[in-house]
Design a protein around this nucleic acid. Sequence first.
DNA 1: ATACCTGCAAAGTCTTTGCCTTAGG
DNA 2: CCTAAGGCAAAGACTTTGCAGGTAT
Lengths: 137, 137
Amino acid sequence: MEELLNHCRENGLRVTVGLRAILDALNAADLPQSLLDLEQNKELAKLCDRATIFRTLQRLEGIGLLRRLNFSHSGAKFSLNTGDGHKEYLLCKNCGDVQTLDISCPVHKLERELAESRGFSEMSHELTFYGLCPQCS
Amino acid sequence: MEELLNHCRENGLRVTVGLRAILDALNAADLPQSLLDLEQNKELAKLCDRATIFRTLQRLEGIGLLRRLNFSHSGAKFSLNTGDGHKEYLLCKNCGDVQTLDISCPVHKLERELAESRGFSEMSHELTFYGLCPQCS
DNA sequence: ATACCTGCAAAGTCTTTGCCTTAGG
DNA sequence: CCTAAGGCAAAGACTTTGCAGGTAT
């Protein structure tokens, strides 16, 4: 947590009550959070407004602390970029359930190759699996 | 094309002017199309309304003829599911340029393993790479 | 002190729906 | 004929912004 705040400071963000609260909420959640999820978080709602959350998420994404996920049929969701790699997800396309996949990223090598062959920089990727969960099958 | 229409018929869709036009437009496009892209397609606009396009896309997705792609910072886009596998994409996160990747899918095996280990069915996935293109770097 | 951050409210953008009419099989 | 599909217009859902006042540094 203190590490996250330092990263923010180093990148010129001011450490405000809102920033702390948002980082706390993201850190506490075990699944990616949408703007709406955060807005409806009771603790957070007491401390800041939707616009603040929105703009803070933007800033955090901007400095690379946050990963943006574009899941089907739900707005963007965000998860903290912890140092130790990222997770991929498996979603049920019927009930919307989100499961986390603890797998080592299968496309890292490909990503580097692409960057080189196409002259791209600052690469990232999004890999999401969809299907019907056992209950919905 | 005739093949696509047959698939539609087999799945109970009526072959209307709108359906033909939408399939044509998707078929002609070499990149995934958003609802807005289609709405603004002059040919198509003469033949059908936004609601029609929207509902037709839904139906086509429903019968598995259409793949829905959720690219960051742009609405959903759709591409026809041709028999011979699907494509993945590389997007510039600054200018929004979309490049098609002609690579054999690197996560097919993983997808099957997941289906088995987690009891999911009707699996699909979305793999998208993001980065800064040479011009935007 | 000053540049950044916040709240509020309003506007944007894209998606989805209701309802009545039209037309495919 | 009967039911799916279409058109129009309005509502929803989510995202984004302007501006005036507050706050971290």
